[in-house]
Simulated assay, not measured.
Amino acid sequence: MTDPDVSGGTAWRRIADEIAAAIARGEHATGDTLPAATALAERYGVHRHTVRQAFRHLAEQGLVTVSRGRGTQVSPRRVAYPLGRRVSMRANLGRLGLVGSSRMLSAAQVDGEAEICATLGLENGARLWRVEGLSLADGTPMGTGTHWLSVARFPDFDAAFRDGGASMTAALKAYGIADYVRLSTRLTAKLASGREAELLEIEPGAPVMVSVAVDALPDLTPIHLVSSVFAGERMEMVVEPFAE
């Protein structure tokens, strides 16, 4: 089958634009499953690969989520997540009217790599906590992160993190740290690995944002490094350098 060209763009773009307009009009609600690629291909008189290209474009725009076994579903609105001097996932999501939650995935003590130890002001090879967690908004996975902290400074951190509901803010309060600040955040992008895709419930190879951040005490002593991966179709980072 030869896909017809249409005035003003290719066939896949026309299909994507029409679906996006239907979502904007409320014809497809959040969580709705769109018709299968084969059904839409028949409707538009195109090859199913053309429809799949339209779906990929919509996913890149954050409008749909394409998942094996579940089809193509209308995504929740993309979360505009603020990055300021103080970064608390649950507090920031709460300001956006979303309920934030977290789960601890794993925790282990390891010999710290040179770069991580240097960032935290520790000797090379110092014992570190390596703790993995998953962050959700209204029950939807948004990001997964690996946290690094000093074992000497934070004994039994695995228990504190678990008992605090996988909240870094709650875990640090267990050690008398009521306030901490963001020293730096480095943002890059990549394609999701198989495990990242499984945790975030996205397609392997989907675009994800990578954040490497360092938190410190108010006197700017670094205490925490976290490397996170966020679903690009669900999150956008808004840099607010003067925000608290």
Score class of each variant (00 low, 15 high):
68 R>K: 15
223 I>C: 11
223 I>Q: 00
238 V>R: 13
61 Q>K: 04
89 M>A: 08
84 G>S: 01
148 W>P: 06
202 I>A: 15
31 G>K: 01
12 W>Q: 03
62 G>I: 02
147 H>F: 10
100 G>A: 03
20 A>P: 13
39 A>F: 05
86 R>N: 11
161 F>Y: 15
235 M>Y: 08
223 I>E: 08
130 R>W: 01
23 I>V: 15
177 I>Y: 09
1 M>H: 13
150 S>C: 07
122 L>D: 02
223 I>L: 07
164 G>F: 00
166 A>M: 13
195 R>W: 08
90 R>W: 06
24 A>G: 12
145 G>E: 11
103 R>Y: 09
20 A>T: 00
63 L>A: 10
170 A>H: 03
170 A>L: 10
72 T>C: 14
173 K>M: 10
115 E>T: 15
130 R>N: 09
105 L>W: 02
64 V>C: 08
214 V>I: 15
197 A>L: 04
195 R>Y: 09
99 V>T: 13
158 D>C: 11
149 L>S: 13
240 E>M: 12
58 L>A: 01
39 A>R: 05
219 D>W: 07
7 S>L: 14
232 G>T: 08
145 G>H: 11
146 T>S: 12
177 I>Q: 00
112 G>T: 11
26 G>I: 14
234 R>V: 04
221 T>S: 11
41 A>S: 09
13 R>H: 12
48 R>F: 15
135 S>F: 12
220 L>G: 07
155 P>W: 03
140 T>Q: 11
18 E>W: 03
37 A>R: 00
224 H>E: 09
100 G>R: 00
207 P>W: 00
28 H>Q: 11
136 L>F: 11
127 R>P: 08
65 T>M: 14
150 S>M: 09
192 A>Q: 06
93 L>K: 01
138 D>Q: 09
154 F>G: 03
102 S>V: 00
170 A>I: 01
151 V>K: 03
220 L>F: 10
63 L>C: 10
104 M>I: 08
130 R>E: 15
194 G>M: 11
173 K>E: 15
25 R>T: 13
82 P>S: 07
234 R>W: 01
37 A>C: 09
88 S>L: 04
70 R>T: 10
31 G>E: 11
15 I>D: 09
129 W>H: 15
114 A>D: 11
84 G>M: 06
40 L>D: 02
187 L>I: 05
217 L>G: 04
167 S>I: 01
132 E>T: 07
157 F>S: 03
108 A>Q: 09
232 G>A: 03
19 I>L: 01
101 S>K: 09
27 E>C: 07
90 R>G: 04
13 R>N: 04
65 T>R: 06
229 V>C: 13
187 L>P: 13
60 E>L: 06
146 T>D: 11
39 A>C: 07
202 I>R: 06
35 P>Q: 12
212 V>T: 12
241 P>T: 08
82 P>R: 10
83 L>F: 01
111 D>G: 10
157 F>R: 07
75 S>T: 01
204 P>E: 05
